[in-house]
Simulated assay, not measured.
Amino acid sequence: MSQARLMEGTALARRTLETTAKRAAHLTERTGQAPCLATVLVGEDPASVTYVRMKRNRCRAAGIESRHVALPAATTTEELVGVLRTLSHDPAVHGILLQHPMGAHIDERAAFEAIAPEKDVDGVTFASFATMSFGLPGFVSCTPGGIMRLLDEYDVDPAGKRAVVVGRSAILGKPAGMLLLARDATVTYCHSRTRDLSAAVREADIVVAAVGRPRLIKGQDIKPGAVVVDAGYNAGNVGDVDFDSAAERASLITPVPGGVGPMTIATLLEQTVDAAARQTGDRGV
């Protein structure tokens, strides 16, 4: 029988979205302009289409205007960059979300860098990573930001703890480690070339699994009493952690789905309202 308490993100995300909706309504009333998130999707990957639809639905529920730009799969990097720059210069658009992954023919980094930093509410640009790493005003990557909110919600203080981040992607693993470091955790990054991954994970007080490999982390790898955050999402609603066995040793563990995912969207919309407030000069939200 599982002993770990669940770190569920659904209730926290709902409260966050309720607060965000109130802030959006106040901003709209004071400025006459609703916060606006532009979503850009290249191609028709079913999972990406579903994610974008979900985010747009959440926008409507929160009183945030949603503008969607659907581009054909054959769109070039140059064409995509042009679209993103146009949105960046549009004063009616406050935040931009470029759904990823994109086709292999697209230079993803060039596309991300076409997003103006003040509208990078998904936290994917060089500028956002730098401001986040240095603790300066800006936008955090949404999933890592949601993870930190979950840790706070469940009274997990990273200070002085050993944190192991399994994964080093630019929008998940790396920023998650930097946010933990900023909270005084001792952070180790692990990845596909880490020797004896199990040994590294067994030292962790906090494990963040963000590598995209189903059930990679086994229960036997978990230090008794550790906090396990599973940011992976694989086919069949399976995370990067073998939930059943890990829950027997962890003190807290996120479910998949219903853990990190809801907080990712909540953070995105919260940061969209933040962006709108800054761009309209409204300090009342």
Rank of each mutant, 00 (worst) to 15 (best):
R5C: 07
R5W: 07
R5A: 14
R14H: 14
E18N: 12
A21V: 00
A24H: 10
A25G: 09
A25F: 05
E29V: 11
Q33D: 10
A34N: 11
C36Y: 06
A38V: 12
T39I: 09
L41E: 05
E44V: 01
D45H: 14
V49E: 15
Y51S: 04
V52W: 04
V52D: 09
R53G: 10
R56G: 12
A61S: 14
H68L: 13
V69P: 02
A70N: 12
L71Q: 05
T76S: 15
T77W: 00
E79L: 01
R85Q: 14
T86P: 00
T86F: 03
P91L: 08
V93G: 03
H100T: 13
H105R: 04
I106A: 06
E113W: 02
A114E: 00
A116R: 08
P117I: 01
K119C: 09
T125S: 00
T125K: 00
A127L: 09
A130P: 00
T131H: 14
S133Y: 12
P137L: 08
P137Q: 12
P137A: 06
P137N: 06
S141A: 15
S141V: 00
S141I: 00
M148A: 04
R149W: 01
L151K: 03
D152Y: 05
D152C: 03
V156F: 12
D157S: 11
P158T: 09
V165A: 02
K174G: 00
L179E: 05
L180E: 05
L181V: 00
A185M: 07
S192R: 15
D196Q: 09
L197M: 08
S198F: 05
D205F: 08
D205A: 08
I206G: 08
V208R: 04
V208N: 07
A209P: 03
R215D: 15
L216Q: 12
I217Y: 03
I217A: 07
N237M: 13
S245K: 03
L252G: 03
T254M: 06
V256S: 06
P262K: 02
T267G: 06
L268R: 01
L268H: 01
Q271N: 10
Q271T: 10
Q271G: 05
Q271H: 11
A276E: 10
R278W: 10
Q279F: 03
